[in-house]
Amino acid sequence: MLLPRTFEALPELPKGKQIQVDFGELKVKNSEGKTVKLYVIVFVLSHSRYKYTEWQEHPFTTRDVLRCHENAMEYYGGMTEEYVYDQDKLMTVSENGGDIIFTDEFQAYKQDRGFRVYLCRKADPESKGKVENAVKFVKYNFGKNRVFHNIESWNEQCLAWLKRKGNYQVHNTIKKRPIEVFALEKPHLREVSAPLSFESNLGSSITRIYCN
């Protein structure tokens, strides 16, 4: 049986330069023995391979994606200069003469946060091999054979697993623990202003939450 190929062809990037983002799906058994389908978004810092994930029980919407970006920024304590994605319908509408047209919500968000976007084609795994490998790692090392009770506890368990294993064990490529490399990378992340809210269903506006 042929094993799936892994891709990490691009050279190592400097600290705080890039985050790669991708999605996955996984079927698991719940406590009643029934099969349920879960959806995951995975973020990985390209330099340190430090990962963040969120799962949900329905396919991602653009608003879900933006909310997860905010949660990832809080988790990391900052953001990078560049974010890498597929040309996904959640972020892009079409490509016109080589120019990417983003969805209104995503366009407003990336302008507000001020990060650059690099979009790669689905047939170009070398451009985002770090996160594709991370998605497989999360799905089959955390999710496989785990019993699903509810989405809240599933996400709590996944974050605990990231701390215990996913970001702790030595990474095959960099030969270091992501948590230790992240400690050196974190000071190079860009500061994030007050968090944004995407919970309102009134139009597509972005609401900024100011904390006292």
Rank of each mutant, 00 (worst) to 15 (best):
K51W: 02
K176L: 01
D64A: 11
S204G: 11
E185T: 03
F182G: 08
N150M: 01
P11E: 02
D99F: 03
V84Q: 04
K34W: 00
T61M: 05
K130Q: 13
R67N: 11
G166V: 08
D104W: 00
T207I: 14
E81I: 05
K17S: 10
L13K: 14
N167D: 01
L2D: 07
N141S: 09
G203V: 05
L2W: 04
R63P: 01
A160N: 12
R63W: 00
T61V: 11
E180N: 06
F182A: 07
W154C: 09
Y50P: 09
T80K: 03
I209K: 12
F102D: 12
F102S: 11
F60E: 07
I19E: 01
E8F: 03
V93K: 14
H149M: 04
G114V: 13
L10K: 15
K130G: 05
G143Y: 00
P125E: 01
V21L: 07
W154T: 13
M73N: 03
M91N: 12
E8G: 03
V131R: 09
K37S: 13
N172V: 13
E57N: 04
E82F: 05
V93W: 00
G78S: 08
T62K: 07
M1E: 03
C120E: 03
E199D: 09
T173D: 11
S200E: 04
T92V: 15
I174N: 01
N96I: 15
I101Q: 14
W161Y: 11
V44L: 08
N212H: 12
E191C: 01
F102Y: 15
